[in-house]
């Protein structure tokens, strides 16, 4: 029995290890290997070039824009996700008719493939067929020949990709926060209520502080997903107009796969690593704290 227990654990654990090694570890090692080499899509050999690709990337003004945009995209969308998911979680915690159906509806954007959702949004924001613009025209809020170009104006384009990404990420954070919310013992807010605390006081001084570890986990996971995602941007704007929505992952794809320079594409993506390591460390620390408390 003891002998069986000795090998059962590692065996059960092995698929996860293999999965991570094959789909995360190996590509990461290869990306690092490529980033210090001269690998193009059609290369037949490998030559070590040191930091040449990194230096070249730093001289690319689009990279500087992409770094700035990555932070804007990630931080803004995570703030919106945090506010939206907290609100939704608080609303969905209460029992009311149709709650299950509403939960199902809210979960849909996360369940549906992000590419499909983004294509839908591309049509919603299309310069010619935008349903939003159509409604605004019908409400006489904008002129028919002067509708907003949602994906063609730099600020509107950035706003659009942030909102679509927020739409996609919101359910994930809501589910996590809802789980955290239901774990708070009911007697604490009830006692606060008896003591005369109103809704906002209870929210900001009891509910949110008690949920903080789980909020941290949701935000940090969201940051990792957002920093590394390019689907929404690739489908909606392809980094345009004139690179104003370009982020690090999309630039890596354009340079590495479409531009055929795998080494520089890998170097661009490697710039994400220190950032993600910090975020991952914070995730693990938050998770540990949540476990301890």
């Amino acid at each position: 029995m003891i002998r069986r227990q000795r090998w059962l654990g590692p065996v059960m654990f092995m698929p996860a290890i293999l999965y991570i090694a094959a789909l995360v570890g190996l590509p990461f090692v290869m990306a690092f290997f490529y980033s210090v080499g001269d690998v193009k899509v059609g290369s037949v050999g490998y030559h070590f070039v040191g930091l040449r690709n990194f230096i070249s990337v730093l001289h690319n003004p689009t990279f500087q824009i992409a770094v700035r945009n990555s932070f804007i995209f990630t931080i803004t969308s995570q703030i919106l996700v945090l506010v939206g998911s907290t609100t939704l979680a608080l609303a969905l915690k209460e029992a009311f008719p149709g709650r299950r159906f509403l939960r199902f509806i809210i979960l849909l954007p996360w369940v549906a493939p992000v590419s499909i959702g983004s294509i839908g949004w591309k049509w919603i924001l299309d310069s010619l067929y935008s349903v939003i613009s159509w409604v605004l025209v019908r409400m006489h809020l904008v002129k028919a020949f002067d509708t907003p170009v949602w994906l063609g104006e730099p600020k509107l384009a950035m706003m659009s990709v942030i909102l679509v990404h927020t739409w996609h990420m919101l359910p994930f954070a809501t589910v996590i926060l809802l789980a955290g919310l239901t774990a708070i013992p009911k007697d604490i807010p009830e006692a606060a209520s008896v003591d005369g605390a109103g809704f906002f006081r209870t929210l900001f001084q009891i509910t949110i502080p008690m949920m903080l570890p789980i909020i941290n986990v949701a935000v940090l996971f969201g940051m990792i997903f957002t920093f590394t995602d390019m689907t929404v941007i690739y489908i909606l704007t392809r980094g345009g107009p004139y690179d104003t929505t370009q982020v690090i992952p999309s630039l890596a794809f354009f340079t590495g796969i479409l531009g055929s320079d795998l080494a520089e594409g890998a170097a661009i993506s490697i710039f994400l690593v220190p950032l993600l390591v910090v975020v991952a460390y914070m995730v693990l620390r938050s998770a540990h704290r949540a476990e301890v408390t």
Partner: peptide
Amino acid sequence: TPEVFSWDPSSNNR
């Protein structure tokens, strides 16, 4: 018009 900044390859066809 500014819509030309938002186009994909099928936009001008449409």
